[in-house]
Design a protein around this nucleic acid. Sequence first.
DNA 1: ACCTGAACACCGTTCAAGT
DNA 2: ACCTGAACACCGTTCAAGT
Lengths: 230, 230
Amino acid sequence: MAAKRSDARSKQSQRIDEPLQPEQGPHGEPPLSRERIVAIAVELLDAEGTGGLTMRRLADRLGSGVMSLYWHVDNKEDVFDLALDSVLEYREPPQAIASGDWREEVVQMLGDWRAGMLRHPWSASLLPRRALGPNILGRLELLGNALSRAGVADADLNVAIWSLWNYVMGATITRANFDVPDHERAAAQQRLEHLGERYPTIERSRLLLDDDWDGVFRRGLDFLLDGLVP
Amino acid sequence: MAAKRSDARSKQSQRIDEPLQPEQGPHGEPPLSRERIVAIAVELLDAEGTGGLTMRRLADRLGSGVMSLYWHVDNKEDVFDLALDSVLEYREPPQAIASGDWREEVVQMLGDWRAGMLRHPWSASLLPRRALGPNILGRLELLGNALSRAGVADADLNVAIWSLWNYVMGATITRANFDVPDHERAAAQQRLEHLGERYPTIERSRLLLDDDWDGVFRRGLDFLLDGLVP
DNA sequence: ACCTGAACACCGTTCAAGT
DNA sequence: ACCTGAACACCGTTCAAGT
């Protein structure tokens, strides 16, 4: 049980001194760098989705040749890994949350996690196939720590972390993918009414019609936490 | 909140009478059909993973021209949708499970669901982006029905179904993607020991080292059910 | 109703070469 | 140390045409 590909380093030697203000290149373009590539990749993914990220298009936006990217990055997979992890970076120091109430703490952490991914809907569908980057690992560490302080036994920690991770991942993916654009909503409603005969329970539960995603997420999380720490 | 693309029908008119034994074509190849295309697509996905499914390769294996596929199928997306749903078909009538114990019933249903997907590891990563086909909807209906009989109030049914769906989906995806092939295991162990300094809780929980996936799945599911139906 | 090949507009990546 | 263009071996899908 281990992270795949998480040690994929590029050929680039590890830089110690990172210039904060990269000087402009001769033609107004800042020089290529791992960071710049990832930033633009995220932009591209936000704008066009998973299918829109192309090494050629990426190079275009960066004002460089396609093959120049390969100096900084192993391959396209690598770009995906880096883009995903970058989305899960913490924007504010997580200590701000650390109140006394562990449960509220966990709920906040997972809510922030979900929100970060929903800001970049492609990230949810990508998560399953990607390695665990440092930001993801950092969030898992924080989660485990909070659970441990809440009194979850070491023997159960494993299960507790995975359960919550799985729940958040599943909920985020579901939310990101089943949200129908407004102009399709009418057609979708129609189709589902027709489904009622074959799937009466689904219809009764309003499973596909209710759109209080945040509420469903929060209530389900509460149920799970009830089970984990009675 | 509604299924995307779930009404995508091909240009083919709805067949009422499906011949059980399609006669051989003149060159030993049975004629092209939606069913045959999907079956071979699943074979291809099992053998080569998501990246291995190509319209050209698919046509090759079917002994037909590439463009012939497009008569039976809308496009590559459509093939993915159909392949995914076909994997979730019930092999035995689900009534066999219906004992009296609703909880055991739910656990069995979800275990079977997960097992079906793990037999085709590509299906887990695919699920997030696909529409709800009839087999998926059928399983959701069955699940909701069992929960309802177990005493979950109609007002909570929505949350209960989604929570379990999210949990199973997350757990299956995690399992399918973090299972390291044996020959990579040694290297992975090494890497993770090195990680212990920065992520002490993760190390202590053996989050990435324990490989009792089935146990973790079952125990987490129990916790969730405890919360859902105390 | 069903199948086809040629053509179009793309892909990711290797390689040998430039500065 | 960093960047490059040409070339290779692929893609999915449109189209006009065949039976």
